[in-house]
Design a protein around this nucleic acid. Structure first.
Lengths: 138, 138
DNA sequence: TAACCGCCCTGTAGCCACTACAGGGTCAAG
DNA sequence: CTTGACCCTGTAGTGGCTACAGGGCGGTTA
């Protein structure tokens, strides 16, 4: 049985975050010592690993809640899991595309800056006026 | 002179957001009618355009605060503006790279899923175990 | 002039996913 | 038995808004 600090260390998760996951019902309530301190069994460690890894892969708390519920129903078809993962993949893809557009606009803006004083700064000028951008962004 | 609703319409910014920008000191306090309603001059519209465009380009509120302060000092050298823009560009670049890594892991995970039941779902398996990932992410 | 209705006002609370305290209690080593 | 590292609960803060509640204003119509 692990204390919350030990669990935190083995999972790379902060103590406060573990308590937070418990409060929002993502982590089950662990046993307690006589002095009211949490003591975790291996299954808690596995679940926290699952949560942390999913978070690192960008899944939202609500998505993880669904994934956990699905992973508890071992005999059901995994189509719902697949759909969730694909939806998230598409969201990541969209974010990448919008950041690439952004980077282009930033590059154009920065390249345009030839030094000198603020009154003639290309960056300030572009920021004031979106029509000087190549395309849409944001 | 524009009412707050008119200003919102011409800038594509919500009314609440304009009031929020005023509260945090990003927008200057406008004049008021006898009945205490805000009335905006053209310079407010320009400033709000600057703010919105900067936000769309991903600058943080604090960065915009600095950019606005710098753009008010027309005769100073624009090196500080340039540095701010470049730093932001690098942050965007880093974010893109981390999302690309993420997308790769998600793709590998999704491709690995051959259907069937949750007990044998590759996605659930990888989520439980980071060592099955190619590299670091998150 | 009164009524109407859409707009405006302030202030507060909520969103996400944590993080950071304050003010106290517990556990294990020495 | 004392020390000090850890743990407890509860609340408030982060960024950048958004969404009310409960009231007031402004301009048009009757």
């Amino acid at each position: 049985m692990l204390s919350i600090g030990e669990l935190a260390q083995t999972t790379g998760c902060k103590v406060e975050t573990i308590r937070y996951y418990e409060k929002i019902g993502l982590m089950p309530e662990p046993e307690r010592t006589g002095g009211n301190q949490r003591r975790y069994a291996p299954r808690h460690r596995e679940r926290l690993h699952f949560i942390r890894h999913s978070r690192d892969l960008g899944f939202s708390i609500e998505a993880i809640r669904e994934l956990l519920a699905l992973s508890d129903q071992q005999q059901r078809d995994c189509a719902a899991v697949d759909a969730l993962a694909r939806r998230h993949r598409e969201a990541v893809q969209a974010r990448i595309e919008s950041l690439l557009t952004l980077r282009e606009e930033l590059d154009r803006m920065i390249e345009g800056c030839a030094g000198g004083d603020v009154a003639h700064c290309r960056i300030i000028e572009v920021l004031s006026d979106h029509s000087q951008c190549q395309g849409e962004h944001g």
